[in-house]
Nucleic acid binder design. Structure first.
Lengths: 344, 344
DNA sequence: CGTTGTATCGAAAACGTTTTCGATATCTAT
DNA sequence: ATAGATATCGAAAACGTTTTCGATACAACG
């Protein structure tokens, strides 16, 4: 293959120690020999072998991104890709390489987290799409290699997380609906093994109770963030509560499924039912009518995750939690609730 | 950190050579010592250091995926993510790690391709989103490390490509429009530095000429695959050709932009204008009306790319081209062209 | 002139593997 | 019993770096 440091040393008439010194900007090398070495490096087109360097330095300058069910969930598509972009950009800016691993609950049972990270020799790991009951979730917080979780609020010496505040996100959504006069508001949540689901449920409940309304567990349906779950959820909620006037969905995809369902059943949105989604994926602004939703800054989440991981690596920072603020985006799927004549 | 092969050897009372032998399934080791070693490996929780292994073997079991403008283009989003998933899954199945690099035309001028790959020590590289005039495009075909290009039809000893046949894709679209009676058909293409643009233009032209119609360069507009290009393109084409009855777009996103434009100008689709897109992104089936388009199997492209790269690595296969068939998906944005009264 | 300090450099160990080469012991065939 | 084949193993080199330790030369200082 290419020339090694030995070739450079020989050609420059110095020792490999000296070559290493000039390449790593050490001070104790004569300016003349420095330029001499650099010229030879240029001539030979020498590039240091990062594998050899990693071996002796015991660090790879590489972070792993493990994502659960990357190509499985459609909802993940919209959410994860932006986060991935943010991670990738920031990691690269900070001089690291990013290696991608997808996993699944079953795969995690086969290969313990530590095996995984010790073999791959990544300096740190980012994790996303993981469930609360996944094996890795608990292994990661106790591991000695730094990590940051996305949307899983766990902290340890070596483990941080970044998320966007789902309880205020849900609160924003529900408060918006309350202001529009809605009194019976359904909630189609994500699966219970997502931390955000718990938080969104909490936010939903807080908003209701702050308005002096009772929380009714029957009003919440658990889906899996996917389109069909939205349709099924609205169908069931509407069956149980014919007087429902609004539904809050834990993902835009579920809201879309609901919208489709309502349209095929000739139930106009927002006139017969107001709906609000979660995430603000690209689709949200494009559907007809455009979806009212809660925006998460996904790209920024990725950037932030990469940044805190690398700070843990380089500045020995301890684990901490970073929570970004969500943002309500009002579009066309929410309208004021017209009181029914029965009120008179 | 964890135990090394030396620790295992000592604990098992054998040499490191023997440990290496049992770990790599060599035959010349006594069954008794093999089980003994394996037991010690289990007890100590030993995992081989892949960095050390890479150094001596001179291969990293890692492939690089370099993608241009990963987080820049919205159109890339829809296209690239599925390909990425396919790549990632297949690479992992075949026992490799995937490391992600994003680049850009300007970044490529700073760091030559060879520097990049020699330093990172990847065994092979996959490339996507790259332009015909990008520096890497030509460096990659002459490099000694195997590579496969996605949607750039270049072949060399060490370089393959996978793409889906854009000339038949365009032909399918245009033939469909011709069959519906359209006679003046516009084409909003992608930028000229994408190989697929040339092919789609060719397919467009072939289909027209096969129907006995002249190719008019004035009927093609060059955009950048993005939504606003679709709107601009239709605006311009409609200005130049008031009797236009159909437009073929080189991306679904441009078709969407066109649809929005047409809707705000009260031009019903497909009644006043038929439109067909390209890619069949998720949005296509979701828009109102649902988009007629040409489907590319993106996930399969990714799988296929990963597969051929690894075959080149392991079976020393030479570079070759793989072209997948596209597929016309007829939905609601194309309708028969009603002849105008001027024909009488 | 001797001593100390500084600038500059090289030899060699170390990182954790794989692999080559050879050594020993056991087995088979004559 | 002996020669050769085979099974099993270990010593050591090699991969390409970084880093420690010390060596040398020369200047400055008393």
């Amino acid at each position: 293959m290419g020339p090694t440091i030995k070739d450079v040393a020989k050609a420059a008439g110095v020792s490999i120690t000296t070559v290493s010194r000039v390449l790593n900007q050490y001070s104790d090398v004569n300016p003349k020999t420095r330029t001499k070495v650099l010229k030879v490096v240029e001539q030979l087109g020498y590039r240091p072998n990062s594998v050899a360097r990693s071996l002796v330095m015991n660090r790879t300058n590489t972070v792993g991104l493990v994502v659960s069910d990357l190509s499985r969930s459609r909802n993940g598509h919209h959410f994860m890709f932006d986060v991935l972009c943010g991670i990738n950009d920031r990691v690269q800016e900070l001089g690291y390489d990013l290696v991608l691993f997808s996993t699944s609950t079953t795969a995690q049972k086969k290969t313990p987290y530590l095996d995984f990270v010790r073999q791959r020799r990544v300096d740190g790991v980012l994790m996303m799409g993981i469930r609360l009951d996944d094996p890795y979730t608990h292994e990661v917080v106790e591991a000695s290699v730094p990590s940051v979780l996305i949307d899983v609020p766990l902290i340890s010496e070596t483990c941080s997380y970044v998320t966007t505040d789902s309880v205020v996100g849900a609160k924003l959504a529900v408060e918006h609906l309350l202001e529009l006069g809605h009194r019976r508001i359904g909630f189609v949540n994500g699966h219970a093994q997502a931390a955000v689901s718990k938080e969104r449920l909490q936010g939903y409940r807080i908003a209701l109770e702050a308005a002096g309304m009772a929380f009714d567990p029957e009003l919440v349906y658990y889906g899996n963030f996917e389109q069909e779950d939205g349709a099924n959820g609205t169908a069931e909620l509407l069956r149980k509560f014919p007087d429902l006037s609004a539904i809050f969905f834990a993902s835009d995809l579920m809201a879309l499924g609901a919208l489709k369902y309502l349209q095929t059943h000739s139930l106009p949105v927002p006139n017969s039912l107001s709906i609000v989604g979660y995430d603000d994926i690209e689709l949200a602004s494009l559907m007809q009518p455009a979806l009212t939703t809660v925006r998460q800054k996904r790209y920024e989440m990725g950037q932030s995750a990469a940044e805190t991981l690398i700070r843990m690596l380089e500045q020995n920072e301890k684990g901490r939690g970073i929570v970004l603020p969500p943002e309500l985006v009002v579009r066309e799927t929410t309208g004021v609730h017209e009181e029914t004549t029965s009120d008179i």
